[in-house]
Design a protein around this nucleic acid. Structure first.
Lengths: 342, 342
DNA sequence: CTGAAAGCGCTTACAG
DNA sequence: CTGAAAGCGCTTACAG
């Protein structure tokens, strides 16, 4: 019942623990005979090295930590999948933690991971994280750190991102090309960098096309979680206050689907009366009616790349090579569906 | 830069490592003075106990393993969230692994978790797992194990489930009450217990209501992942082969939404020509059009309960109390929306 | 009240 | 080719 140890194997074979250890790891200075005996018995007893002890010796855990604002979220779950799959390929395990968009929790979780001695940390920031001491502390302690999607420019670590500004520009330009003249924007939370960048892309597209930028058409979400309900509410307000609007660029698909649903309910025709484009390409977007145009954000790939970068840094660190943070920018793609047909 | 150890604290204060250790843990046999000094210095140096060493000594890791068939899945991600949140409350960390519906992978992952010495394992089975030796091995080694949703009756461990048969009966009865006379069933994969149970509930409802059971109306999925595309394909086949069908009970919302989409495309009116009910209450179901009737399956609660049960068993085990596996059955709820309106 | 000692299970530099 | 020894960082029973 008790797990088998090297000591037991050594005892049964009447040899030393060190020899058993070396035999199992194919050290060249152990006789073939001994190796054979040891390996056979290890198999019979189903010997599994005690990870705690190995970790303590090697000072590595082959475990990484992942902090995500919200697990139940199509984009994030795709990323989790990418990270977990890629990690498994290299024999790494992933501890997952959810910050719930809370800075306090995020900070606590970083500390938790740090004293669990994970070999590295991957994180996407909570919306209200504006102090980054906890992350700088990770960088300072030379523990590899990779941020993705919701990043902080001021933290000196590798980042896997998309070009939010450019993607938002493309989305807005698409609305303009489809004939929209007065375009609103639901930007989600105020703080996160990608909300800001998407907003800037939207505004730039308007100006580049000679359309006026009207701040009254930009809706900021009050609560921290950008939700379906918010999309419905904002749409109702928008339609009341600005009945001349003919297009909306919404920075999350979920909110965009809320908007669609509200339009359907109020009898406002999408795309005839108003065109809507979302952001992220959640699975849902192609099954709603009318199907939602959006910007595809490569979640799985983002997860894969985040782990690959982290792994590279962990390995270089172990070999005492020096490395510099890298910014990895992934391509997005405009997905045209019914909601912006002209 | 190097993590601070007890030894360093002891060195600086000129006292022994044991005293430092005891002081930090408030052992009653250490003087107030010493405690104060030690704690102060520990704080200044930002001392964090080395988890490896603590684990090795205590033979516990305060970490559990979670194996899930597929991460990108609304129901499962809700469960992950429930488990992770509940675990955090008790100071436990969760290692997440995805079996990808593969028995081979699942087996490997169990072994991985076992020699990581997690304190317990929570698992939902891969569809093609029919051999349960790897799980029985966990039970035999007295490592707490909890299964949820996709379980194996033959494994002697605690389980958190819903009553699939009853829920399927309710769904089918609802179609009958809405006037359906000839009801098809998309049952998903052949093997998993919940597919079987849902099928049995469907059949029983028909028979109890004096409707004939026609095996030709039951569609089994060929591939292992029950998908949107499958819903579309099956629906096309069904409409060609059986144009008298007026209701479908589909064992997953995702497939049901595929069916809805295909009906919309083919001009078949839901709910007028044909009524559709799904299973699981994915978020998507309320935003498609027509909104999908379904059975609500309490994912978050299921995750919470799974962890709570595991935690109970871990604790009892530690205290050398004996415990017996429990079956925890959670309530489901019929959600009536437009797709079955009469 | 304090500390020396043993030990958790492993790895590895060193001696023989 | 083999093994004794030291050590990773901690905890705890025991002696003083």
């Amino acid at each position: 019942m008790k797990p088998v140890t090297l000591k037991q194997i050594a005892g049964q074979l009447n040899i030393s623990v060190s020899t058993v250890s070396k035999a199992l790891k194919n050290y060249p200075d152990v006789s073939k005979e001994t190796k054979l005996k040891v390996k056979e018995l290890a198999k019979v007893l189903n010997y599994q090295p005690n990870a705690f002890a190995v970790n303590l010796r090697r000072k590595e855990s082959r475990t990484i930590g992942l902090i995500i604002p919200e697990i139940v979220h199509h984009f994030f779950s795709t990323i989790i999948k990418g990270i977990v799959n890629q990690a498994e390929k290299e024999g790494y395990l992933v501890i997952i933690l959810q910050s719930n968009e809370s800075y306090e929790l995020e900070k606590k979780q970083i500390n938790l991971l740090l004293n669990q001695h994970v070999d590295g940390i991957i994180i996407s920031l909570a919306n209200n994280s504006t102090n980054f001491d906890h992350l700088n502390q990770v960088v300072l302690s030379k523990k590899p750190l990779v941020m993705f999607d919701k990043i902080a420019k001021l933290v000196n670590c590798s980042k896997v991102i998309i070009n939010d500004r450019k993607a938002a520009y493309t989305a807005t330009q698409h609305l303009i090309d489809a004939g929209c003249k007065r375009i609103a924007h639901f930007r989600g939370s105020l703080l996160p960098l990608n909300s800001i960048d998407r907003f800037l892309g939207y505004r730039k597209a308007l100006l580049d096309n000679g359309l006026p930028y009207d701040p009254a058409l930009v809706y900021i979400s009050e609560c921290d979680d950008t939700s379906f309900e918010e999309g419905k509410m904002n749409t109702r307000k928008l339609l009341e206050d600005h009945d001349d609007v003919d297009g909306i660029f919404i920075s999350t698909d979920l909110v965009a689907i809320g908007a669609l649903t509200e339009c359907n309910k109020l009898g406002v025709k999408v795309p005839d009366d108003i065109k809507i484009i979302g952001f992220s390409n959640w699975f849902m977007s192609k099954v709603v009616s009318p199907a939602l145009s959006t910007i595809d954000q490569p979640g799985y790939l983002m997860g894969e790349m985040a782990f690959k970068q982290l792994y590279k840094e962990i390995t270089m660190q172990k070999n005492k090579e020096s490395y510099y943070p890298e910014i990895i920018e992934l391509e997005t793609k405009l997905i045209v569906r019914e909601s912006t047909a002209s």
